[in-house]
Design a binder for these strands. Sequence first.
DNA 1: ACCGTCATGTAATCGGTTACATGATTCT
DNA 2: AGAATCATGTAACCGATTACATGACGGT
Lengths: 170, 170
Amino acid sequence: MSTIRLTYTSYVVLGLVELAGPSTPYDMKRGVEASIGNFWSFPHTQLYTEPERLAEAGYLTEEREEGGRRRKVYSLTDSGRQALDAWRSDPTGELAELRDPAVLKLFFGAERGPLGRAQLAAHRRKLAEYEELRDAIASTAPPGPLIALECGIEHERMLIRYWSRLAAEA
Amino acid sequence: MSTIRLTYTSYVVLGLVELAGPSTPYDMKRGVEASIGNFWSFPHTQLYTEPERLAEAGYLTEEREEGGRRRKVYSLTDSGRQALDAWRSDPTGELAELRDPAVLKLFFGAERGPLGRAQLAAHRRKLAEYEELRDAIASTAPPGPLIALECGIEHERMLIRYWSRLAAEA
DNA sequence: ACCGTCATGTAATCGGTTACATGATTCT
DNA sequence: AGAATCATGTAACCGATTACATGACGGT
């Protein structure tokens, strides 16, 4: 049993398994897209390697399905739940970075007009998608995902205002 | 002369050298902090390895200072300027992700109260810092950095509203 | 002369991404 | 039955981070 550094990806995996119960990597993949994947994405291959890492370190157990494809099924251990709890209950003051590719271009002198229009279109689409998603899950989802989705919605609205203003000035 | 994939870090380096002229890694480091580093950060060691990569691929030239520490000084080549231009003038529809550690915790069930208060404090500090910075450079800085800074300010304001609301509900 | 801090850099490690590959399933 | 798409996974590579290390310089 090795010792590893828990990354954000680790917590996403632990959190997903807590939410959904014992999961295969593919279960996780489906759990990620259209939820947490909207604002914290990574390639699906991470969902094969990361649970393995976590299992080696004792945060998950790894079993094989009986019959069929005999896929790997991961479950939370006590140690895993503890790690998740410790992380979750530490009220971090760490801040998100903008890390917006379009703002990066802007910083280095990109033309506002075309960039603004492209961004506006994309952000409007994303906002619509979020609002639809919220309406679809509002009555059934746990509060965490819902409230996070609200943040995503505010984020999109802010950026739509921002790029609108820029595109208008240009 | 090798072929490399240009990452965001590459464009940051190319952009910095364009803005500031021939630079040593340490010049770049100073250029990064308090400007682009606020919303697209990375460890300073990247500023030693990345220019080297870029020089090998022909986007920068590498010279040695005469005397003193004989530090490496990097300058843009035509090829580097072209790559920067091509990137900058492509109006990307690629979207920023939230990728906010605090929202991640929220998603997986963190308590709103303590987390909200910690985030509020941190975001208020950051906002004040941005506003001060803006006032300090408003008259001298090129438009790109200023307009990007405006985005950072709006971002902070949005998150202050968001966490205020959450902390109040909790 | 010493100490602390800033300046400057090297090297190793590793998480994350990219590329690829093969079974299942569904559709026509 | 063939094609297309979804499901499931492996392996290699590499950019990014972490750890460490030494030189310069200002203050006491």
